[in-house]
Simulated assay, not measured.
Amino acid sequence: MRVVLLGPPGAGKGTQAQIIAGKLNVPAISTGDIFRANVSGKTELGLKVKEYLDAGDLVPDEITVAMVKDRLAEPDAKAGFLLDGFPRSIPQSEQLRESLAELGHSLDRVLELVVDEDELVRRLSGRRMLVDGEMIQRDDDKPETVRHRLQVYREQTEPLSGFYEAAGLLSRIDAIGEVEEVTARALKALGVDDAGQPSAD
């Protein structure tokens, strides 16, 4: 099964990606992991990525897409994958579709984790980290910063929701509740049971 996982910061994407991919027995693939692997492995693309990151610039779409395409062509992703954090825009989603077509594949489902903004702000601004024996809040987890991050998400990534809905691929998942409850809703939307097998209903 080939799945894309969408959702704003704080929706629990990272957690759900690992659990759902484990149930489906496919790799959970995040662009962050791909970037790190290419940079640490000093691949040709990784060296280019490092230049952009060192300069504080965003990595251009064509480099991100090329790295994702290379990753999807690896043996462990042949039977399926779960993409977390990619695509982030409609141009990236169109390039993903073309890359998959070249590999003879297409997406099966897009899951969007849905959480209202107040809950996201509460979750993210509630995070603390231990520094010199004191629990402090990271600057990027302050409520005003969180709301800005959500605004950026809405402008850049939320249009994907409509794009995939129009393609008949989107399932919206209520991401409020215990981790297991959210996972169960996601698996139901994928038509599989807790063991990753096709469900009877």
Rank of each mutant, 00 (worst) to 15 (best):
V115L: 04
L82W: 01
D141Q: 08
I136M: 13
G177E: 07
L107G: 15
S161D: 02
G168Y: 10
A167P: 02
G104F: 10
A186V: 12
D132C: 03
D57K: 15
S99V: 01
A77E: 00
K48W: 01
G56Q: 11
P198E: 06
A101T: 15
G126H: 08
S125L: 14
G162P: 03
L24A: 12
L100A: 05
D84V: 12
G85P: 08
G104L: 09
I29Q: 00
A66D: 13
Q197D: 05
D132E: 14
D140G: 05
S30P: 04
M129V: 15
G85T: 08
L113I: 10
M135W: 14
E180D: 15
R109K: 11
R123G: 13
I20R: 01
Q16P: 02
Y52Q: 08
K48I: 06
K13Q: 11
E102D: 15
G32R: 06
L47C: 05
L6F: 12
L160E: 03
L124D: 01
V110F: 03
G133S: 08
I20L: 06
Y52C: 07
D140N: 05
M135L: 10
K13M: 07
A21P: 08
V65E: 07
D132R: 12
R149M: 05
D193T: 09
D108G: 15
L107P: 06
L111R: 06
E119D: 11
L169V: 09
H105Y: 10
A37H: 10
V59N: 08
K23F: 07
T145M: 06
A175S: 15
K42V: 10
E155F: 08
V110W: 01
L103Q: 11
R147N: 09
N25L: 05
L111W: 04
A189N: 14
R2L: 04
L130W: 12
S125W: 14
A200V: 10
D116C: 02
